[in-house]
Amino acid sequence: MTGTTTTPGTTTVSTTGETRARVVRIGTRASTLARTQSGLVADRLTEVTGLPTELVHIRTHGDVSTEPLAQMGGTGVFVSALRDALLRGDVDLAVHSLKDLPTAPPEGIALAAVPPREDPRDVVVARDGLTLGELPQGATVGTGAPRRVAQIAALGLGVDLVGVRGNVDTRIGKVRSGELDAVVLARAGLARLDRVEEATEVLDPIQVLPAPGQGALAVECRADDDLVATVAGALDDPLTRACVTVERVLLAELEAGCSAPVGALAEVAMGDSGDELWVRAVALSPDGTLSVRRSASGPLEDPEGLGRSLAAEMLAEGAADLIAPET
């Protein structure tokens, strides 16, 4: 009788001495967007390493609850079930939208790769091809993100911001049916679904900064698995990782979760002595009437330091009081 034993690395060795490629099990949420994102990771991993992959669908708390994300706590509601499956050994990798990840590092799990980032900006999908500014006063605009609510309210357009949840089809369907006049979504999701043409406006970050980490994916492994090095070599993009590190360190220093009214966007720009990091950030009161906006630049080699220093400036200006006002 023959059997198999799985090594911590990238091969499966049979008791007959035959060696074959390890099948890498990739944990993913079951939504169309999540499966598409995980499929992109799987395809790239196989292309670079030759390792076969399979997607394993995991249901998360955020998928089964109908509560607004802010009421569920926001941070981690789409993440914990995938991480639990990873630690149990049910899957070898977990793929997340990086903006959903809590900023605290999880025990026993490594952020093995941050692949190249999609366009991080927000978009509007509105009836009749309208832009946000063209919507009439009182028009209903759907978004479940306090960050978007606060920034759009700050524009003073007179639109009615309505909480909305669900996948891309559900949200856009509310516009097509006439239930809403517009919804605001991440452009990256539409791009990965090959549906960018449905956006009627791409929002300028000067007006609406994206969520920290928006547009980027996170690929996690068990910290003691040899796959960490393999996945990092195949998928990690150092420039994207540096940018999202600035944004996430800023978020952590502000002690704000992923559902807080905080926007941040770091980019690589040409400085006086070569490439450097440039970051813009905003913290707002929930109604958008008050805000702290700052920008800064720093060396590409020290994204953590740049995130911490910018957060310190914002905290000195009262950002913490805006994010978590007294009740």
Results as ranks from 00 to 15, higher is better:
residue 85 A to V: 02
residue 85 A to K: 01
residue 85 A to D: 02
residue 85 A to C: 00
residue 86 L to Q: 02
residue 86 L to E: 02
residue 86 L to D: 01
residue 86 L to T: 04
residue 87 L to C: 02
residue 87 L to G: 03
residue 87 L to R: 14
residue 88 R to Q: 12
residue 90 D to P: 06
residue 90 D to R: 14
residue 91 V to I: 14
residue 91 V to M: 11
residue 92 D to R: 08
residue 92 D to H: 14
residue 92 D to W: 09
residue 92 D to L: 10
residue 93 L to R: 14
residue 93 L to M: 12
residue 93 L to G: 10
residue 94 A to N: 01
residue 94 A to F: 04
residue 98 L to K: 00
residue 99 K to N: 15
residue 100 D to F: 03
residue 101 L to S: 03
residue 101 L to H: 02
residue 101 L to Q: 09
residue 101 L to D: 05
residue 102 P to V: 12
residue 102 P to C: 13
residue 102 P to G: 11
residue 104 A to G: 06
residue 104 A to F: 11
residue 104 A to N: 10
residue 105 P to S: 09
residue 105 P to M: 01
residue 105 P to C: 00
residue 105 P to D: 07
residue 106 P to W: 10
residue 106 P to S: 12
residue 106 P to R: 11
residue 106 P to C: 09
residue 106 P to Y: 09
residue 106 P to F: 08
residue 107 E to A: 15
residue 107 E to F: 10
residue 108 G to L: 05
residue 108 G to S: 04
residue 108 G to E: 05
residue 109 I to R: 06
residue 109 I to H: 05
residue 110 A to W: 04
residue 112 A to V: 11
residue 112 A to Q: 11
residue 114 V to H: 11
residue 114 V to M: 06
residue 115 P to H: 07
residue 115 P to G: 07
residue 115 P to Q: 07
residue 116 P to V: 12
residue 117 R to F: 04
residue 117 R to V: 13
residue 118 E to R: 15
residue 119 D to G: 03
residue 119 D to Y: 03
residue 119 D to A: 06
residue 119 D to H: 03
residue 120 P to M: 13
residue 122 D to Y: 15
residue 122 D to K: 15
residue 123 V to S: 08
residue 124 V to M: 10
residue 125 V to M: 11
residue 125 V to H: 06
residue 126 A to Q: 09
residue 127 R to V: 13
residue 128 D to L: 08
residue 129 G to T: 04
residue 130 L to Y: 01
residue 130 L to E: 10
residue 131 T to G: 14
residue 131 T to L: 06
residue 132 L to R: 02
residue 132 L to Q: 01
residue 133 G to W: 03
residue 134 E to T: 03
residue 135 L to C: 03
residue 135 L to G: 05
residue 135 L to D: 05
residue 135 L to P: 00
residue 136 P to D: 10
residue 136 P to I: 03
residue 136 P to W: 04
residue 136 P to H: 05
residue 137 Q to W: 01
residue 137 Q to E: 15
residue 137 Q to S: 14
residue 138 G to R: 00
residue 138 G to P: 00
residue 138 G to Y: 03
residue 138 G to S: 00
residue 139 A to V: 08
residue 139 A to Q: 03
residue 140 T to E: 14
residue 140 T to W: 14
residue 142 G to D: 12
residue 143 T to A: 04
residue 143 T to R: 04
residue 144 G to N: 11
residue 144 G to E: 09
residue 144 G to M: 12
residue 145 A to C: 00
residue 145 A to M: 13
residue 145 A to R: 02
residue 145 A to S: 15
residue 146 P to T: 09
residue 147 R to K: 15
residue 148 R to D: 15
residue 149 V to I: 14
residue 149 V to M: 08
residue 150 A to Q: 05
residue 150 A to F: 06
residue 151 Q to T: 04
residue 152 I to V: 15
residue 153 A to Y: 00
residue 153 A to M: 04
residue 153 A to D: 10
residue 154 A to L: 00
residue 154 A to G: 06
residue 154 A to H: 06
residue 154 A to Y: 02
residue 155 L to C: 02
residue 156 G to H: 08
residue 156 G to T: 06
residue 156 G to E: 05
